[in-house]
């Protein structure tokens, strides 16, 4: 499925934005939100291509969460359109239809578990889709298998008895059981310990290589550089950069100006370049950087 954003602007105060701006918006203490941020998104245009892995980065309050909620029609643009395969999400009935193929996993999805058993929780989505019991059963098994949980061991247990990492997997399985073509993830590894983090990122990578389109919001530039085909950088609700990791991370000072940094190896590489090293790759990770430095050092050693 292709998701196209056309000149999307969004204001939490809807049509009343202008009126309220004069009145209360400027002075109201709001929980967690900057009071003057009337527009959460401004003229955002881009396309999520089928099969790609798109990363979304941005400082806190830059509009990332708002942006991804447009992708399955939870919120509709104040101006502009969001098209899913050419169909406008704001039209009646389209959004609930599109939600079957665009799975949205919120931040800390384990907080949304509610059922008596893991089985019922994972089955919630498929049942809402009106599938018959047999198909629901198949999808629950598949969902749990995808996230690496044992159906036989866990399906009849209460989700509240599981560990935090397992709970998150169950919540993940609940979305995967709807078999979405596009998977939108808001900070999927936030708050996980380093080991579960790696496992989870591996899982996401697998889901992508199975052919799913992935949109992932993350604060970790390293994760984005390692996984994404393209990265969208938001700043104050605008598209600040959109391109391959190499393109986006090439300009570290610009990223810094919007409160983000380049991944550590990339930053180290550009510092080394200034110190006289010739490092040619556009994008470095720890291994490639170590290899290139080693090559230069031995080269120098041989010459000198």
């Amino acid at each position: 499925m292709r998701l196209a954003f056309e000149d999307v602007s969004y204001s939490y105060e809807g049509g009343e934005a202008k009126k309220k701006r004069k009145g209360r918006a400027g002075r109201q203490a709001d929980w967690g939100n900057a009071p003057d941020a009337v527009w959460a998104l401004r003229q955002v245009s881009f396309t999520v291509e089928p099969g790609e892995f798109l990363g979304v980065a941005g400082h806190t309050g830059s509009g990332k969460s708002t942006l991804i909620q447009h992708m399955n029609g939870l919120v509709h643009p104040t101006c502009g359109r969001v098209l899913a395969d050419g169909r406008d999400l704001a039209e009646k009935g389209v959004a609930s239809d599109v939600r079957r193929s665009v799975g949205l996993v919120f931040q800390y999805p384990e907080n949304q578990l509610f059922a008596n058993t893991v089985y019922d929780d994972v089955a919630f989505g498929p049942r809402n889709m009106g599938l018959d019991a047999e198909e629901v059963d198949r999808r629950v098994r598949e969902g749990l298998e995808l996230v690496g949980l044992s159906f036989d061991e866990l399906s009849e247990r209460s989700p509240f008895d599981l560990s935090g990492g397992q709970q998150r997997r169950v919540a993940f399985a609940g979305v995967l059981a709807m078999e979405p073509a596009v998977l939108v993830l808001d900070e999927p590894v936030a708050g996980l310990d380093p080991l579960s983090r790696e496992e989870f990122l591996g899982l996401i990578r697998e889901l992508h290589s199975d052919g799913r389109t992935i949109v992932m919001v993350s604060h970790s530039m390293e994760d984005l550089a390692a996984l994404c085909d393209r990265i969208l950088v938001l700043s104050e609700g605008r598209v600040f950069r959109l391109g391959t990791p190499a393109e986006v991370f090439a300009d570290a000072p610009a990223l810094k100006s919007v409160g983000l940094g380049a991944p550590a190896p990339q930053a180290f590489a550009s510092a080394l370049r200034e110190a006289g090293f010739t490092l040619d790759r556009p994008l470095y990770n720890e291994k490639t950087l170590a290899a290139d430095i080693a090559a230069q050092m031995t080269g120098r050693g041989g010459n000198g």
Partner: peptide, 8 residues
């Protein structure tokens, strides 16, 4: 919104 995403 999360449950709505799951078709509720």
């Amino acid at each position: 919104r999360a449950q709505k995403s799951r078709g509720a």
